[in-house]
Design a protein around this nucleic acid. Sequence first.
DNA 1: CTCATTTGACCCTC
DNA 2: GAGGGTCAAATGAG
Length: 354
Amino acid sequence: MENGWSWEQKTLISELIQGMELAKQLRVQFSGTSSSPETTDMLLQRILNSYEKALLILRWSGPVGQSHTVGVTAGVPGSPISVNGSPGSDEFEKGLKDQQELNDVSKKRKILPRWTDQVRVNSETGLEGPHDDGYSWRKYGQKDILGAKYPRSYYRCTFRISQNCWATKQVQRSDEDPNLFEITYRGRHTCSHATNLVPAPSSPEKQEQKHNNNNDNQQKQSLEILSTIRNNLRVATENLDNREMAHPFSFPSTSFGCMKSENSHFSLSALDNSALLGGFPQPFLSQASPESNYFTASPFQVSNFGGVHMQYSESEIISAHTSATNSPILDIDFSLDPVEIDPNFPFDTPGFFS
DNA sequence: CTCATTTGACCCTC
DNA sequence: GAGGGTCAAATGAG
């Protein structure tokens, strides 16, 4: 590997840089405008900071982090938060240490990266969108949880055996809001199979629209992203299947299938300039409802893609915040197919909120 | 027949 | 010991 940097890494860095430059341009434009300039500037600054951190992390881990070890990501297994931690080199060392520990199988489970999404199911329209996170899951258990009204379901990747893919997820229905499901992902997908491929955008217009957003309307898109952030990352969910209401823990595994590049429409080049904004890995990329039929990338791009939206619980946001500053630990698999996006790339948390 | 789900039992961690 | 997570036999669906 030349210089230890793969093509994917270079592309990633290139995209990061480009995104950062765009954010800078945005900041220049916004500075001085009347519409809450402080907030705008602050948010833009945050975005820039995030890019810088991401680049830092990337460069730190680049040639070094070639081991592709199942990463300790921002999510940080088990303990979400230490909010006030400051980013420091010791954290990097910790990351290295954790990665080394991954060699110990017995610790594998413990160290698996972990993050949470919240998915709301709309009882009216009742479509099965939000659970299509692009992977193929098989339910292996269900458990009544102390203090929880509803049982928790356990899923693992269908290809655990065939491809040694150790990704799992837990689905817990919210007590307060039965329409809300908290999905905790653990581990990364190492499988490359695609039993069920994510459908292409339903219509050329939508695809075109998306494409335009990626190119001609970058600034507009950024504004929408900012708007999304302002809205606490909470977006209404539509067109979801209320079948889940009746069987909350039977998330259809059939509609998933590990994402396959040729169908995912997520090639880096296709993402163009929005790669950093929209190209979030699983579970941040979710197939939109059958109606919208194209991807959503949450939480940063939700406003651009109708249909299903992930929600982040406050704790998750905090976690994100924390990991951004505290856990520059990487889980970047640069061995990925150029068009495949690493499920665990720690964009879930980091920079965008720091 | 094959594969996914269910469910009670077992294991692990705190 | 309690609770959460996983295993694996039984069962069901296609």
